[in-house]
Write a protein that binds this DNA or RNA. Structure first.
Length: 491
RNA sequence: CGGGGUAUAGCACAGUCCGGUUAGUGUACCUGCUUUGGGAGCAGGGGGUCGCAGGUUCGAAUCCUGCUACCCCGACCA
């Protein structure tokens, strides 16, 4: 079989790129750093969105929408926030074009310069907190729990499809609370929502934990993260939830009057996941034949490929295929019958493997006679011949099994690639030879963290919520360490 | 932003060094026939401002100058 993807062993990065393009997920656009998300890729994103959106609503959030543009002055209020985002902002300076007086085309009309520039949002804390100021007077107005589905722009130097693009799609939750405790609880709740989504739907195990000060979101008091391990041993930050303290309330002057009549600043959180999750999904499960999708997020869960020689056979086979499809659809399974005559079965088999369809049914004249179908699993690439009778129950069960099986595989991979080290030499050796998550003691200082980053390119991914808490000695300085933290090279 | 590279059909490339028929190959596309249980075969066909702008020349994809875009490696980042 002709391989259309660069094998992972040859170049993981090239494999990733090939896969995204060949599976029809996305492609580079005419705009630098911005991708076109193609229908199949967008269908997967839509499935993610639906599940997440339901979870947000179950946890008491509502959707709303705020402007794409943020006045420059809003942006400059929170010092850390400016520091974090200033270097990657797209800025709108004019509002009109005119015909080029010196030749063809159009030019920016210099007379249409804006009094105050607009920033294209890299994140929406500032415009939202400026709005919340008008919405909040009393403790009765709290909490406010809003989510927004939007696009944001961060002018990145180097981009990669889904993993880092100049424009990306995401959701950002922004909540306002009367108490610190309530805000912290909110940020923890939403991290759990993300972790549960990653594990139960994406079949991707994640570490939950706190970011160190240097890795924290610009303007946050505390950043919680979910960190996933990719097949090449690099970590991918897959979602973050921030406790923002009163930082934004103070700079936007958002106060409420408490039951006791006292004026207090409001406490804040924000949290988000982006189309980067698509990259995570791809790198968590896929192989050299293409995408491997968990059934719960697959736009097509079962594809039926008819096999035939003559027109009469085609008619018979498609009739049976439609029958099976109808039965499966009744069970809530998304099915595609591919009766396209332009491609031979072999081509279709390869194509659906490339696109990660979890189950494939082939049905031909032989099956019609025997009352059977051939059923192929994408995750294991195994095939079995099963009776048509009871196929609905069989497939329902099998989809659960696939969902579990790829999750287990990912858990095992992470287990095998999570190592504990005591010395810096050992640390460097493991990092270069194996990669993966490395648990090690760290003295808690930014200097040591920075030194390790400079020397090894590894960063502290998180201080895990569920990790061991025994004290020890820092692997670099030998100074006392409260606990081990998780290091990795990351995307 | 620094270092390196590339730009020729939808896509992947050859041709450029050493200027010279109608710019070629694979794939994809269209038509027809034969095929269809792991990426089919044959025949015919359509598709090109050779990145852009100048220059040299009888003649430029090819030589010269300038520009632009993209890719890779670094620094920056979800």
């Amino acid at each position: 079989m002709a391989k259309v993807l660069t094998p992972r062993s040859e170049s993981y990065a090239q494999w990733y790129n090939d896969l995204v393009i060949k599976a029809g997920l996305a492609e580079n656009s005419a705009v630098r750093g911005c991708m076109v998300i193609k229908p199949y890729g967008y269908a997967i994103w839509e499935k993610m969105q639906r599940v997440l959106d339901d979870k947000f609503k179950e946890t008491g959030h509502q959707n709303a929408y705020f402007p794409l543009f943020i006045p420059k002055s809003f942006f400059s209020k929170e010092a850390d926030h400016v520091e974090g985002f200033a270097k990657e902002c797209a800025v709108v300076t004019h509002y009109r074009l005119k015909n080029n007086p010196d030749g063809p085309g159009v030019v920016v009309d210099p007379e249409a310069k804006l009094e105050e520039e607009y920033i294209v949002r890299p994140t929406s804390e500032t415009i939202i907190w400026n709005t919340y100021k008008d919405w909040i007077q009393s403790y009765r107005d709290l909490p406010i729990k809003i989510n927004q589905w939007a696009n944001v722009v961060r002018w990145e130097m180097r981009t990669r499809l889904f993993l880092r693009t100049a424009e990306f799609l995401w959701q950002e939750g922004h909540t306002a609370h009367a108490t610190k405790e309530e805000a912290i609880e909110e940020s923890e709740t939403m991290l759990k929502v993300y972790a549960d989504f990653a594990e139960s739907y994406m079949a991707m195990p994640v570490l939950q934990g706190y970011k160190t000060a240097s890795e924290r979101f610009a303007g946050a008091v505390e950043t919680l993260t979910i960190e996933a391990l990719m097949q090449d041993g690099k970590a991918l930050q897959s979602g973050t939830s921030h406790f923002l303290g009163q930082n934004f309330a103070k700079v936007f002057d958002v106060k409420y009057q408490s039951k006791e009549g006292k004026e207090e600043y409001v406490w804040a959180t924000s949290w988000g996941v982006s189309t980067r999750l698509m990259g995570a999904l791809i790198m968590a499960h896929s192989d050299d034949n293409g995408l491997v999708l968990p059934p719960k997020l697959a736009p097509i869960q079962v594809v039926i490929v008819p096999i035939y020689r003559k027109d009469e056979e085609l008619k018979q086979v498609v009739e049976k295929a439609d029958e099976i499809a109808a039965e499966l659809k009744k069970l809530g399974i998304s099915v595609k019958v591919d009766d396209d005559d332009n491609h031979k079965p072999g081509w279709k088999f390869a194509q659906y493997e490339l696109q990660g369809v979890p189950l494939r049914i082939a049905i031909g004249p032989r099956d019609i006679q025997n009352g059977t179908v051939e059923l192929a699993r994408r995750d294991t690439l195994t095939k079995e011949v099963i009776p048509v009778d009871g196929i609905g129950a069989h497939i329902t069960e099998l989809m659960d099994e696939i969902q579990n099986s790829i999750y287990q595989r990912a858990i095992n991979f992470r287990k095998e690639n999570t190592r504990t080290v005591d010395t810096y030499d050992e640390f460097k050796k493991v990092l270069d030879d194996k990669g993966g998550f490395i648990m090690a003691h760290w003295d808690g200082t930014e200097e040591t963290e920075e030194k390790i980053k400079q020397e090894t390119k590894a960063t502290i991914r998180c201080l895990p919520l569920n990790g061991p808490k025994e004290p020890g000695k820092c692997m670099v300085t030998g100074k006392p360490s409260e606990r081990m933290v998780v290091f990795a090279r990351a995307y």
